[in-house]
């Protein structure tokens, strides 16, 4: 027994990093930890505190979240827009990712370029571009009218349609990346085997390929849904005040009606939902890989 312990300690001494030296590395971590604690986590906690204490201490603001009709409408609008956006983004993203996954290398890099350019494009510039395209004197309407396809301009901005187009466009690249990661992980010989055993292309896709991409689909659905919940810029610019989502509503409560408690309660609720969804997501996929570490 004693010799074992002795051997254990001597072995540990051979390793150059002992406990004493490990302490040094906490000094490395300290600045970033303090920075985030003071400038981010405490402020977040303050929001939570305001939601419980303004105008009076108690859960009143949270009760209001459930029985205020205006809030109910905003939450329903948000959920509707987010769900539609998520479904469209993942369907379009799946088609793009599939095309990338089966493309030869050169075609693949062309497609990746098409995915990454908008990925890196400012959300404001994109919203502006969609206004240019969709408004009544916009590019699409003048194009259609010059051909006589329509006589009066289609109304595509300042309504939910415009918001949806802008949001789907923003989210598609975020759907493509996890989907592509799961498709690239599929062993090509599985498809070859399925083909060799007599399955047609469609059957191989439905029975082999698609089931193997389920984790990717799940990750894409949650990731897109989380990100759309807090959307701010696109709904305001393309919705023109007619489609108020949670983020815009919080802003109005803060800047116009000055109901800080209510705004904070709504923000806290939004954060809790997002964190719960992230928890579900991280169980299915490596978060760091997905959030653009590559």
């Amino acid at each position: 027994m004693a010799t074992e312990v002795a051997a254990g300690t001597s072995r540990r001494k051979l390793l150059p990093i002992g406990n004493r030296q490990d302490q040094v590395y906490w000094l490395f971590v300290l600045p970033v930890l303090l920075c985030l604690l003071v400038f981010f986590l405490l402020p977040l906690f303050q929001v939570f505190w305001i939601s419980l204490s303004d105008p009076a201490v108690g859960p009143d603001n949270y009760i209001k979240l459930f029985d205020n009709r205006a809030i109910k409408r905003v939450v329903l609008t948000t959920l509707r827009i987010c769900t539609i956006t998520t479904v469209f983004s993942v369907v379009i993203g799946y088609m793009i990712a599939f095309t990338v996954a089966i493309a030869p290398p050169r075609t693949r890099s062309m497609l990746m370029f098409a995915i990454l350019v908008p990925f890196w494009m400012s959300v404001l510039v994109r919203a502006f571009a969609w206004v240019t395209l969709l408004r009544s004197e916009g590019v699409i309407n003048s194009f259609l009218m010059s051909f006589g396809a329509i006589s009066t301009p289609l109304s595509m901005t300042n309504n939910e349609f415009g918001v949806l187009v802008g949001m789907v466009h923003y989210m598609v690249p975020y759907a493509v990346l996890p989907l592509l990661a799961s498709m690239d992980g599929i062993n090509p010989s599985l498809i070859a085997a399925s083909r060799g055993l007599g399955a047609g292309p469609v059957q191989s896709f439905v029975k082999i390929f698609m089931p193997l991409t389920k984790p990717g689909i799940f990750a894409a659905l949650i990731l897109v849904f989380i990100m759309t919940l807090g959307f701010f810029v696109t709904p305001i610019i393309l919705g023109g005040g007619n489609t108020v989502m949670i983020a815009e509503y919080i802003t109005v409560q803060m800047q116009q009606t000055l109901r800080w408690g209510l705004a904070s309660a709504l923000a806290t609720a939004l954060l809790v939902v997002v964190l719960l969804l992230i928890g579900a997501l991280s169980r299915s996929m490596d978060m760091r890989k997905m959030l653009g570490g590559g």
Binding site: A114, I115, P118, V125, T132, H169
Partner: peptide, 16 residues
């Protein structure tokens, strides 16, 4: 459809 999706993604830059 995949290529159509890629074009949709590029559309705003094509316009702006």
């Amino acid at each position: 459809l995949g290529w159509a999706g890629a074009l949709f993604l590029l559309l705003p830059s094509f316009v702006i």
